[in-house]
Design a protein around this nucleic acid. Structure first.
Lengths: 285, 285
DNA sequence: TCTTTCCATACCCGCACGGTATCGCTGCCT
DNA sequence: AGGCAGCGATACCGTGCGGGTATGGAAAGA
């Protein structure tokens, strides 16, 4: 069985993305001929044509498209492997948890307390990040993350549900909907909604938002409104009001971590979080 | 950013599994010194100790254990990439579906018919296999599989639920429990259950079973009994009887495929299967 | 202390990867 | 139509690195 090398996949990915050997070679910091040769060699070893070379343009074959996608997962896995190994080897072991400030549903202090009570608990390093938090997990930069379903893509991650919440429309008290006791999504058709960093373009207009304070400030300034989990209630400024959105899908706060993770520290953390969440819902929250 | 090479991961995996440089080198078909050097080099580039070398034994460090696990996922991804690319490049495009004979809940013919009615449907190649069917998906040998939850490990796979069934105890008509109208798991404590190929050792005694006919034959011979989904009813020999197991968890037949698969042919197949399953449950099955 | 075991070091060699120069094809412009 | 420009393929060359052999050195057992 011929073995695929990482170097070849990097080369192929560059060519497949640029669809141009010259530019790809430049991007890789090498000359064009060895790149051409490497790709040809890869095709020979796989016994499959990956690129259609017209004299003026290069196109992916069906197999090439498959390999491009597969290559990305292999390369992602490889760099995640390096990062996770390096982190595991650090002298100061710690658990890196990535959160969105204000996005913890109020459970985080209790979870941290419960975790510290576990035997062999490590110090927890909190990383605050907006958009694309799940990518930090996939890249091996973090051990676990607090995410929201269905908002985030959870494929490739294991999860533990923590808290399911209805959603509220948050707006300035002077807003046309502020008097309502409930709204539905149709009422928001024309409203400017926040654009989270990394979200797909064009979906929602309005300025890009990077943290919760900024978001609430912009809402108070009547630049936008937002639909947020109901645990946001405790953090609202008094010039804002929130009313339930009847037909907005409930959002679930989940603790997520990379599949097949085995660290006992992470397992203990998941246990602690599950216990806290179970207690919270058990009490009727 | 230093890049991890597949060759290095293969080497490291061998050493980490053997915990012995000489044996690992033999397994790799190379001499020991270059292997030692490669591992040292890997450690230098990662800046992390992976192995503790006692003069008489080699042990994994914490970071080494992490890298061993990560390496396996990278190497699996790499060989799956090669296989999927090769399959995508074949001149005769087809969809490879892996099933367990008798394990399709009777839905398969309807699904295949519905799929062939889709535009651009490919020929479907059926592969029959017992134990570890999901591994064929992860290895890139198949496009989709019919699996049972919670029996199979579905991490890393996307799924579509098809059919949820209660489970039956299947036994010879002369069995001591054959007169019962229902049983529970406690009744089976001493019974020999089949050992599926690849299943963990020691859990269930009894001979290893490779296909459904063999299994039913062994049951008729009083060598064992088995707990199977209720759709097995239609395929029982008349010297066997089946009664419901009250406290056996219901089993769900799912269609599974590799995460992030993009083939339109696969998408059409999933659509067809979902439609058939919806119709079946809609009719009250 | 002598032996055995096993990883590390020293040294050498061949090849495969990368660079430079050039060819050849093809579409485009005049 | 002919010349040109863009771009990938081919030819050829040098060198760095991966792999082999021989040997060292530390530790455990007899």
């Amino acid at each position: 069985m011929e073995r695929l090398e990482v170097r070849e996949l990097v080369y192929f990915t560059a060519v497949a993305e640029e669809l141009h050997f010259g530019r790809a070679a430049a991007r890789l910091g090498m000359a064009q001929p060895p790149l051409s040769r490497a790709i040809r060699q890869l095709e020979r070893r796989l016994g499959v044509a990956l690129l259609e070379r017209g004299s003026r343009r290069v196109a992916l074959t069906e197999a090439g498209a498959v390999l491009l996608r597969e290559s990305r997962t292999v390369l992602d896995a490889a760099s995640a492997a390096a990062r996770r190994t390096r982190r595991a080897g650090r002298a100061d072991p710690r658990l890196v948890l990535v959160i969105k400030p204000g996005g913890d549903g109020g459970l985080l202090p209790a979870i941290l307390d419960a975790y510290q009570a576990e035997p062999g608990a490590l110090p927890v390093e909190l990383v605050c990040s907006f958009g694309e938090r799940e990518i930090l997990l996939r890249e091996g930069r973090a051990d676990a993350a607090l995410l929201h379903r269905p908002h985030h893509d959870l494929t490739g991650l294991d999860t533990q549900d923590l808290l399911t919440e209805t959603q509220l429309l948050v707006m300035p008290s002077s807003h046309r909907l502020a008097g309502r006791t409930r709204v539905c999504l149709n009422d928001l058709a024309e409203e400017p909604l926040p654009r989270w960093p990394g979200a797909s373009e064009g979906g929602s207009p309005g300025p890009e938002v990077h943290d919760l304070g900024q978001l609430l400030h912009l809402i108070a300034l009547r630049r936008m409104v937002a639909v947020l989990p109901s645990s946001i209630r405790g953090q609202l400024r008094d010039d804002l009001v929130a009313v339930p959105v009847d037909d907005a899908e409930p959002t679930t706060l989940v603790l997520a971590w990379p599949e097949r993770a085995t660290s006992p520290a992470l397992a203990a953390f998941v246990r602690a979080a599950a216990a806290v969440a179970g207690k919270a819902t058990g009490h009727g929250g």
